[in-house]
Design a protein around this nucleic acid. Structure first.
Lengths: 206, 206
DNA sequence: CCTACCGATCGGTAGG
DNA sequence: CCTACCGATCGGTAGG
């Protein structure tokens, strides 16, 4: 054997050390710990145990690391919505699928989604990421609106507001959830599903 | 009259310009726009239209501005919970009050609460603020647990998880809500109340 | 004499 | 190793 195997499982020749994937993993965790802006390239190099200039062997800029992480999480969330829409089932069922699958994405890709959700639009790249997030919320609002017309969800709450609040409920998971084992947390997904769907369904209080 | 009146309504002598309150308002808005860490004293000075050194006439440090804003929002949220607990009503009613009043605090003190909710514990001060937030969530979890025992809320979901998700729903408001007039948004408070209480009450899906 | 503010400058650290 | 910039501090000044 002339190849080594990294922690990420990719096989390669050459000097052992970080590959692009491993470097990104460490950097994204550092970004989440201290904030993207507040994490200097010097801090990343100390964390990685390599020089600042060595980082530039793997990526062109600090922002490129952010770009990769954002595209990864956004692509997964967009996939969840697209696959649910493709079911061609009643809107309330598609919504149910999105709730379950979104929790799965959040818990399995926690670092990448966490970074995405903490952006505030400080650069052109972050603005574009926020726009893609907004697009997802709009597609879910359309499903809620359709489910209301179907009579499956209460019609006395605004679909757009409901979509935002439902996304807010799900997204808040990144603020406290810490993975235990390898398997996604089925109990959490079920609780989220019960609370969000329950809130969208039943007239609760007079 | 030998005194002037500032926008904040405080009466004083001396050269006209910013008072501490007005300066803090501008700084907190800048922090929310670009992030606390990413906002330099130089950026604040440009925003304010005064020199960097002039800022230090009003506050001792950048962190003091953060401290004031955090204490303000945390004190309001803690007051909401304390006042609800003092009602000595059934837990589910106290919870209902907290939901309505929290939305009111979020929308009327939006800049201060926004700053609070975007903290990640990058300093000792931020860690302490996060601890106070956690304490609030725990007090609400206790109320949910009690309401479950009272038979007013479904008992098949974990009170601690429910509290976190409910807080997540409410807190997500700062990510998209923009005040329209002076009055607090009663419709939003009602939607939040319906969704969160509804989710905690009704068995929704099989 | 009060409060608000100025220009100049410090030691230190950022990204590249 | 470079340039640009950070937060903080100084003595001094302006308006009221």
């Amino acid at each position: 054997m002339t190849t080594t195997t990294t922690a990420a499982g990719t096989s390669r020749r050459g000097r052992p050390g970080y590959d692009r994937e491993g470097l990104i993993t460490v950097c994204v965790e550092a970004f989440n710990r201290n904030g993207y802006e507040a994490t200097s390239m010097g801090a990343l190099s100390r964390e990685l145990g390599i020089s600042k200039s060595a980082i530039y062997h793997h990526v062109d800029s600090k922002e490129e690391i952010l770009d990769i992480a954002l595209n990864r999480s956004l692509a997964e969330l967009e996939r969840v919505v697209s696959e649910a829409e493709a079911l061609d089932a009643p809107a309330v069922e598609e919504l149910d699928t999105i709730l379950r699958e979104s929790v799965k994405v959040l818990t399995t890709s926690l670092p990448y989604v966490t970074l995405l959700l903490r952006l505030r639009g400080n650069s052109e790249m972050e603005v574009k990421a926020l726009q893609r997030r907004r697009e997802i919320t709009l597609r879910i609002a359309d499903l809620i609106s359709q489910a209301q017309k179907d009579g499956d969800l209460r019609s006395d709450i605004d679909a757009r507001t409901a979509s935002r609040l439902a996304m807010g409920t799900i997204n808040s998971i990144v603020d406290w959830y810490r993975p235990v084992g390898g398997a996604p947390d089925a109990a959490l997904a079920e609780t989220v599903r019960q609370m969000v769907l329950g809130g969208l369904r039943a007239p609760a209080a007079g």
